[in-house]
Computed example of a mutant assay.
Amino acid sequence: MNLIRTTSENIDFTNLVKSLDQDLAIKNGDKNDFFVQFNKIDLIQHVVVAYDSEQAIACGAIKEYDKETMEVKRMFVLPHMRSKGIAALVLNNLEKWAKELGYKRCILETGEKMKEAIALYKKCNYIRIENYEPYKDVIESRCFEKKLK
């Protein structure tokens, strides 16, 4: 497997995000329209794409939330490649990149129904925090943080 650092202009990233959005539309149901507004990918400068034999199989991104914080966005692994540790590798690479850029922590939001995602973040030492803006009053949201060391 090969991980590359790129931007949101990468066509493989764009295609993986389309699959992610289809998956989320099913899982989020009628709440999906609310979340779509926070998942725009244009202008994201920090994207990681994982490849297996030239095929893009997973992705994730980070974008600045504030001067000390990067927000993890658009984490996705193709369904047939799940449960192989790929998401953790992508997330670890994103955290490393954020640290290289001088950020002190990563935060993220996921939905209460995203049991696999929540398990991944806990396994990768993220701790649950109070929902941050724009998810402050969103009952279905679960927010997490990890201090970068």
Rank of each mutant, 00 (worst) to 15 (best):
Y132V: 00
K123L: 11
I41F: 00
Y103K: 11
C143Q: 01
K122Y: 08
I4R: 10
G29F: 03
N32D: 14
V138F: 10
L24K: 08
A88K: 12
K96N: 15
I26T: 06
K123C: 12
I44M: 04
T69C: 05
V36K: 13
Q55H: 13
V49Q: 05
I129N: 10
K31G: 08
E112P: 06
F34W: 08
K99S: 13
E116D: 14
K96C: 15
F76M: 04
R142C: 15
R105D: 09
M1P: 03
G60Q: 02
S8M: 06
C124H: 09
K136R: 13
K146I: 01
K40E: 12
E112R: 13
I118C: 06
E64T: 04
I107G: 06
A58G: 04
V77F: 02
V17N: 01
R74E: 03
A61D: 08
E71A: 07
Y126C: 08
E109M: 02
I44F: 00
T14G: 12
F35R: 05
I57Q: 07
K136V: 05
A98L: 04
I129Q: 05
L148C: 06
T110E: 07
L94E: 03
K67M: 15
M1T: 04
K99P: 06
T69Q: 07
M114S: 13
L120S: 06
N15I: 03
I86K: 06
K122T: 05
I4K: 11
G85D: 08
L20G: 02
Y51D: 08
S8C: 04
C124M: 12
I62G: 04
D33K: 12
E71F: 03
I127L: 14
I86F: 05
E116V: 00
S83D: 14
F13M: 03
R128G: 12
K40C: 08
K84G: 10
V48W: 02
D12W: 02
I127G: 14
A58T: 00
Q22L: 15
D66V: 00
E95R: 07
S53D: 15
A25F: 12
N125V: 07
P134T: 02
T14R: 15
D52T: 09
E109G: 02
M81G: 10
F38K: 02
S53F: 13
K84P: 07
I107F: 06
G102N: 09
D21E: 11
E145W: 06
L78I: 04
D137K: 13
I127Q: 14
D137R: 13
K27F: 10
V77C: 02
